[in-house]
């Protein structure tokens, strides 16, 4: 050791980080709410805020030799930054902390993202609904979803995995988006669980493995909007190729010139499905809603409506108040 008076004592005090985490215990875990592909979500009590119930998402981050990966740090910092806007259709991120006990074991950092707790997600909401949703309810939920998506897109975030499971429904029936903005953080821990990732809301460009952009979320939202009307998934494929067949049976097989380049599957490997009329699948749907959903389920991502286009669609603008 050097004669420096600063380094040796310091090392001990910093090594004692765990003690700080233990004494500063802020949350009490109650029970597991769900296990997603990327981590476990717990219901917990915030001991510093009058026992408020929160949802804690546990994410494991691989530490590199440079410490916490730059991409992870920036993604989480961006989520914190978004919080300042308090967007009504985005789930509140209340705190971020890392767990004390397994700190740096196996070069892994356990991060807890503390979110507001919302009782149910859209999946269970639709399951529990006694009958078809009212037209106004469908419209307001559709608007909520698209507002949230538009907000994310305007902050350069692509959700990538929109589905009823991570759309939360508050007791007053508002919809909030959850589970976004950690794409790169997740990538380091893709193999965390064997939970099957649903394909039903995946757009064709993702299934075909070509580059994608914000338009993926519009496709997924389109599938969810259709589901609000029927309370059943619109395109329920069982595997990648089956999902593509489902899509083409609905919107028709795309023309050869629309087929993206550098794809291993050729367009001729699919039967020449003619497009179906969405009105046959969504009976009693409002004609403007039908037009909106059709504009969202377009094969070519460049021709698909943007989230902002959707919000300005007559389906919403003709029907105040919003």
């Amino acid at each position: 050791m050097s004669s420096s008076s600063t380094s040796p004592p310091s090392l001990n005090s910093i090594g004692d980080v765990n003690a700080l985490f233990q004494t500063a215990k802020k949350y009490e875990e109650l029970n597991v709410i769900g296990t997603g592909a990327y981590g476990t979500v717990y219901k917990a009590r915030d001991l510093h805020n009058g026992g408020q119930i929160v949802a804690m998402k546990k994410v494991k981050v691989a530490l590199t030799e440079d410490g916490i990966p730059l991409s992870t740090l920036r993604e989480i910092a961006l989520l914190r930054q978004l919080e300042a806007y308090r967007h009504p259709n985005i789930v509140r991120l209340l705190d971020v902390c890392h767990g004390g006990q397994s700190l740096e074991r196996d070069q892994q950092l356990v991060l807890f993202l503390v979110f507001e707790h919302v009782e149910q997600d859209l999946e269970s909401y639709l399951k529990r609904a006694p009958g078809p949703l009212s037209e106004n309810r469908i419209r307001s939920m559709s608007y909520d979803i698209l507002s949230g998506v538009d907000f994310l897109h305007s902050h350069r975030i692509v959700h990538r995995d929109l589905k009823p499971h991570n759309l939360l429904v508050t007791s007053s029936g508002r919809v909030k988006l959850a589970d976004f903005g950690l794409a790169k953080t997740y990538d380091t821990e893709m193999k965390l669980t064997s939970v099957v990732v649903t394909l039903w809301y995946r757009p064709p460009e993702v299934l075909l493995g070509v580059s994608y952009n914000t338009a993926v979320d519009v496709w997924s939202s389109g599938c969810v909007l259709a589901q609000l009307h029927t309370r059943a998934p619109l395109l329920a494929g069982s595997c990648d190729s089956e999902q593509l067949h489902c899509i083409f049976r609905l919107i028709g097989r795309p023309a050869k010139h629309e087929w993206p380049q550098n794809v291993s599957i050729v367009v001729d490997s699919f039967p020449d499905y003619p497009p179906q009329d969405l009105a046959d699948i969504l009976p009693r749907v409002h004609p403007q809603a039908l037009d909106l959903i059709k504009g969202m389920l377009v094969f070519d991502p460049a021709k698909r409506l943007t989230a902002l286009d959707c919000l300005e669609h007559p389906y919403f603008t003709d029907h105040a108040p919003h």
Partner: peptide
């Protein structure tokens, strides 16, 4: 290595205290 370990730990500690609000 002890310096480096200390800095790595301190980095996580700083993040914790800032609650990842780095903006």
């Amino acid at each position: 290595w002890s310096w480096r370990g200390a800095v790595a730990q301190a980095e996580l500690l700083v993040l914790r205290l800032l609650g990842f609000s780095l903006d």
